[in-house]
Amino acid sequence: MLEGAGSSISYARVTPLAKNYVSTIALALIPRAVALNLAIGAIVAALKLPVYLDSIGTVLVAALAGPLAGILTGVTSNLVLGMLSSPTFIAFIPVTAVIGASAGVASRVGAFRTVPRAIAAGIMIGLLAGAASVPIVLALFGGVTAGGTGILTIILRSLDLPLGSAALISSMSVDVLDKVLSCVIVAAVLARLPRRLGARFGLPHPAA
């Protein structure tokens, strides 16, 4: 597996799996990223912060290994959360798939190379995630979930906004804040990652 390359060590591209789109190293990273989503999500909830940060592992994998790896991370995260925490997370699998896919596409266009680009990517991912969650919230929860987003929806309903619009605006507002923060953190981490490790994912180093 190891090949000498001048003064530095480089690695041959690992065997592609999952229909030739996801490498072994990406598959090895995904379970750790899923666990990171759960661990950071639990800590943020314990610290009573107004964000979730429970997609930070998904965004990291998508930034390093592309949209399919991002989708796999998001889907696996909510499946595991559904098994370990509450089955309601299973209903939101499409939302986490959208987050993984959009973060992977954003990475392909260099969205994690600078902080301003990461902020723009976070806004885009947050808007898409918010839009994806609204049909689920309307169909299964009657338009409001018990939590910060639900309180925002109720406040917007008190201003005579239709239920769909109130749910959409509250979901997008919360998701944009959360995903901007996640993307900025991922960009900062990628900038500190050894260049050799980024190259192992078969992509140009996102911070290069």
Partner: peptide, 8 residues
């Protein structure tokens, strides 16, 4: 989050 992500 930073050290955790680099280590993973």
């Amino acid at each position: 989050a930073g050290p955790l992500m680099v280590s993973l």
